[in-house]
Amino acid sequence: MFKKLHDDGAERVTVTIDGREARVPAGETVAAAALIHGLQPFRTSAVSGAPRAPYCMMGVCFDCLVEIDGTPNRQACQVRVAEGMAIRRQDGAGETAP
């Protein structure tokens, strides 16, 4: 769906996206990283199970919710990637903590 215009030569961190490792520019949003690396959809809706993915990219639509390091309902467009971060698709309403 999206591609990078060019390699910006930025410092990179390693994250996992649905279990697969990816090297992504430090400082980038989780949403941008996951879009480039093909996370599709980002989540399924809590009401009907419909597929969803980022819509607004500015934090007002809440359709980019994913599970980050085990915590569901994180706004992918508002969270920056970090070394070792585990990003996962969220199925329906999130699970409560263990």
Partner: peptide
């Protein structure tokens, strides 16, 4: 706007 944010902040464009 989402497309533009991806362009400005991540250098990303439609494939």
């Amino acid at each position: 706007g989402a497309g533009q944010i991806l362009l400005k902040s991540a250098g990303m464009v439609p494939g």
